Simulated scan of single mutants.
Amino acid sequence: MSTIEATRTLITPLAEPLTRRERVVLAELSEDVTLEEIAARLWVSRNTVKSQVRSAYRKIGVSTRAEAVAWARAAGLS
């Protein structure tokens, strides 16, 4: 996903808004850390982070970490 596509995605309202935790997890994905490290920072299990990541990906219409990071940057989350 290019930055232009990410920006275009932002212009279209999300069918479901991101939860506060989904926004936090998306911001964390932009750093060079594993899901385990994100989980430890947020005091939750790795499976909880995986579930939040999957939910956020579905809502913003991406399928990879790189696309999610581009979307998050365009949205000002990271």
Rank of each mutant, 00 (worst) to 15 (best):
E16T: 15
V62E: 01
V33H: 04
G76R: 10
W43T: 10
Q52V: 08
V44E: 01
R73Y: 10
P13I: 14
S45Y: 04
L77I: 08
I60Y: 08
I38F: 00
R8C: 10
E31N: 12
E22M: 06
S51T: 01
T7Q: 14
G76H: 09
L10G: 06
R46W: 06
A74S: 13
V53M: 02
R46N: 07
I38C: 00
A75N: 10
L18E: 03
P17T: 13
K50Q: 11
A74H: 06
R46E: 11
T9Q: 15
E67L: 12
S2K: 13
R54C: 02
E16K: 15
L26K: 07
R21G: 00
V33C: 03
S51K: 01
R21Q: 01
S78R: 15
L29E: 01
K59L: 08
D32P: 07
L42G: 00
P17N: 12
R58V: 07
I4R: 14
L42D: 04
R21I: 02
R20N: 08
E5I: 13
L18A: 05
A72C: 08
I38G: 00
N47F: 09
R65H: 02
I11H: 13
T34F: 03
P17V: 13
V33D: 02
L35V: 04
R58C: 04
Y57Q: 10
V69A: 07
A70Y: 06
V49S: 01
V33Y: 05
L35M: 01
L10P: 04
A15G: 15
L26G: 02
L29Q: 00
T64Y: 04
A74K: 10
N47C: 02
R21M: 03
K50M: 08
V62M: 02
T19F: 05
N47Y: 07
S51Y: 01
T64E: 04
A70C: 11
S55P: 03
V24C: 02
T64P: 04
L10Q: 06
I11G: 11
E37V: 08
A15S: 15
L77Y: 09
S63Q: 13
A15C: 13
L10T: 05
S2R: 12
A40E: 14
R58I: 03
R8G: 11
T12C: 13
W43G: 05
W71E: 04
E16M: 14
S2Q: 11
